[in-house]
Design a protein around this nucleic acid. Structure first.
Lengths: 114, 114
DNA sequence: CAGAAAAGAAACGCTTGCGTAACGATCGGC
DNA sequence: GCCGATCGTTACGCAAGCGTTTCTTTTCTG
């Protein structure tokens, strides 16, 4: 069953969520960073820099930098892959899960108030 | 009738939209800029720098800079208010309307594919 | 009509992200 | 074992955003 949305409702939802997120959270993740974060948490692991770069259609340094930033915020973690030590496996964190959980609630609440 | 969303569906929708938007459009508006843009286009005018700053909970220079950037992209326009020449009234543009229309379609399509 | 107040922009120094290119570390094929 | 390929990071110069402060123009007040 698809999510039923009219054009104006869709933009209205985005509007309400963006507005509330800006008001509530000073951490201003870029859309790219958000896409990366959601990819990590919603798609089954393992996640690598190269894989994320390919999925997002961006270069590898973009991923590295985003992981730097979000790592400093505690939203993700990096672990060297012991099977192939060239790889880095991106790990989820409790704080990251909490962050997205709150964000999901925000979407739902704003959707309810539409 | 509210938009019905479960937590995972809400994040999934955001994920799909963010991913597709990153892949398709090199213009990477920040969440703040997007919130401003949507406010301008979804809420009845007039819109002023001061009003937007208050609504978003940010300082005036943030709005000025965002309008500079989005103005350069053709997404919004600025016109001096002739009634009170201290004010600037933010105007919508055809290109901005088109941009949001496409974005709305993106949300709907991704919502359908959930 | 002088002085305070208000609106928006500009200036300042700083931080962060970008794309491209170069780099060390590690693996795989011969 | 070596040499090319692969993975992630780092370096570089540049553009854009931030918060704070200052400035200019315009309006309101007494």
């Amino acid at each position: 069953m698809p999510v039923e949305l009219t054009p104006s409702r869709a933009l209205g939802l985005w509007h309400a969520v963006a507005l509330e997120q800006v008001r509530v959270d000073s951490r201003d993740l870029t859309l790219r960073q958000m896409a990366i974060l959601l990819q990590i948490y919603l798609v089954p692991p393992p996640h690598t820099v190269r894989g994320l770069a390919a999925t997002l259609g961006v270069t590898k340094p973009v991923i590295t930098r985003a992981l730097d930033t979000m790592g400093a915020l505690g939203l993700v973690d990096r672990v060297r892959d012991e099977r192939d030590r060239r790889n880095v496996v991106i790990k989820r964190t409790v704080e990251g899960a909490l962050y997205l959980e709150k964000f999901g609630d925000l979407i739902i609440n704003q959707g309810r108030n539409l």
